[in-house]
Design a protein around this nucleic acid. Structure first.
Lengths: 246, 246
DNA sequence: CTGCACTGTGTGGTCTGACCACAGTAGCAG
DNA sequence: CTGCTACTGTGGTCAGACCACACAGTGCAG
């Protein structure tokens, strides 16, 4: 119960905070190479294993990429791929029952409807969003030879492409994570679909309708169409139809 | 270019996947204790340091909590505190310039407006949301002796309380993370406020207005009031007024 | 002089063994 | 029965060793 002002951080936390500080101060920036593990350990007065634990965290969080060997691409390099860390977080939290699937779907609903509305609004300005990538995916989804899982992968890529078109990296990364979190459920839900051919046709038509609303700069339509699209698919594949997010 | 089907995962990934599998299969559930690090290492045929790297990741992600010593509370225990992992992720991504602050604010805007609207809609049903905690925070914010940082802390808690009242754990955790990511900016932005007394009064009045709209089951008003509340504060404290999320 | 094989060096990746602080528990002394 | 003392097992940390890898230089063969 003593008034411990220090709290004695663990060794790996020292490393993490050191790197975070250097990141905030600009001493380290994306593209830079971190000092070697041995050098970092000596510099901070901790063991190499503690350094490695911190680096492992940074790697999973999508902040660094490590390569063995020598040369300019070797070592730990600062990157910024938020999607990876978000996906790992969501996947594991779902696995540990920290995130109910229904909440993930509800969040996706909110974000995607907002993205669709924003894209439509942007279409009315001179900063028209680039939907070429998304539409290429829609064309690919028209291939009748696709299996259901292949179709779902393209579907996920389409939704992600819309998020990217919105330009909001946080929403893009979050949606990538949300999608990863429910990927298992999405695949399992396929079994609940009676007529895949009809469902696929409906999904494709809904996708086109969303894009059309965006291109027409009809924000309200874009929002509701995206909302109904996701909500409808979830209702069709959910094992518990009672708990459908509004 | 040989057809490597294995790809030889790294040792710590083996551990991570093992635990994730056990989580998904129900073999491990929140509250359970993981085997000791030495036992896990022996069981999976990896070194203890590799096990520790995986556990460190799980800890930062908010999936386990570790305690030294002996007894029922010692060891690594499965928990589910998504907020922690989300906060670390956002904080570090902001530090590494992976997440622009403007995108975080924009995301917060979307989520909080949605939360406010949903709470208002719920107020019209018999499942009225519990706003007692949020209102207690509002009362605390009326204390004229508060410093600006103290006020901001209560403000953050208030917004989080609303998210919690919505019952969506994903949104709650995400908002906690978003908030952590821009905490530094929020504190730095205080310097840009000319008349803190007036700003504080306005913020408090806006908070009350949002809660009033929720209680009145006026979803549209709740949404717009929350939207304007956040957007307005950000406009006041942003160093770059040009980039205000719509 | 050119080109290729070889060795050198530094990187992350991993394992092992050791020690520490800590907390509960069993056992002993009173 | 009470209270103290070792004991045991936990995570936390460190040091050292070895490996695979990839580049950089060297030196020999042509």
């Amino acid at each position: 119960m003593a008034a411990d002002t220090s709290a004695e951080p663990r060794a790996w936390e020292i490393v993490l905070e050191h790197i975070e500080r250097q990141l905030l101060s600009g001493e380290l920036a994306p593209g830079d190479r971190l000092p070697g593990e041995r050098a970092l350990a000596a510099e901070l007065g901790v063991g190499r294993s503690s350094v490695r634990e911190a680096l492992r965290v940074l790697e999973v969080l999508g902040l660094i990429r490590t390569h063995t060997g020598s040369g300019p691409s070797a070592g730990a390099i600062i990157i910024s791929t938020p999607g990876g860390g978000m996906s790992a977080l969501m996947r594991l939290q779902v696995a540990a029952s920290g995130f109910p699937v229904a909440d993930i779907v509800a969040t996706r609903l909110v974000l995607e409807a907002s993205v669709a509305g924003d894209l439509a609004a942007a279409s009315a300005t001179d900063h028209r969003p680039d939907l070429a990538g998304a539409e290429r995916l829609l064309d690919a989804m028209d291939d009748p030879g696709l299996t259901a899982p292949e179709f779902l992968a393209l579907d996920a890529a389409f939704h992600l492409a819309l998020a990217e078109a919105s330009g909001n990296q946080v929403i893009t990364a979050t949606m990538a994570g949300l999608r990863s979190g429910i990927e298992g459920y999405a695949l399992a839900g396929l079994a609940r679909i009676e007529d895949w051919h009809a469902t696929s046709a409906r999904l494709r038509s809904e996708h086109r309708a969303v894009v059309a609303a965006i291109r027409a700069a009809d924000a309200a339509a874009a929002r509701t169409r995206m909302h109904d699209h996701i909500s409808g698919y979830y209702a069709e594949t959910s094992p518990d139809p009672a708990r459908i997010p509004a």
